[in-house]
Amino acid sequence: MSDKAELVKREETTPERSRRIPAVAPVVDIYENTDEILLYADMPGVAKDAISINVDNGKLTISGVRTVTATGAANWAEFGDVEYTRVFSVPQAIDVDKVNAELRDGVLKLHLPKSEAAKPRQIEIKAA
């Protein structure tokens, strides 16, 4: 009996952390011009407050949690709670302080401006 009690206790002391919300990578488009890199990510149903964007040590992490609150009985459900998350490598040339994001109709649009030093420069040849 005492052994059984111990068994139960041990299960409690070594809890197994399990993620309940499935995590998926959102589909993205990445564009670049001379001034910035532009990233679009589809995150339908994610509210503005539920999105976090982190730039750390050359890694850009975007993450957004969507919770679908079911009303009534579901006849069918093809989508549900999900955590959209994806990590990108950011080139050194990005000015991290000026990164800005907008969210519209479930699409996250992220502007990653290039730092002045990284922009292409036209060099004029002076007549000697």
Binding site: D42, M43, P44, G45, V68, A70, T71, G72, A73, A74, N75, W76, A77, E78, F79, G80, D105, G106, V107
Partner: peptide
Amino acid sequence: TNLYDVGNHFEIRAEVPG
């Protein structure tokens, strides 16, 4: 899409980003 039956009405939700 998701379809919910809420007694007096149906609720349909669809993912349409962008």
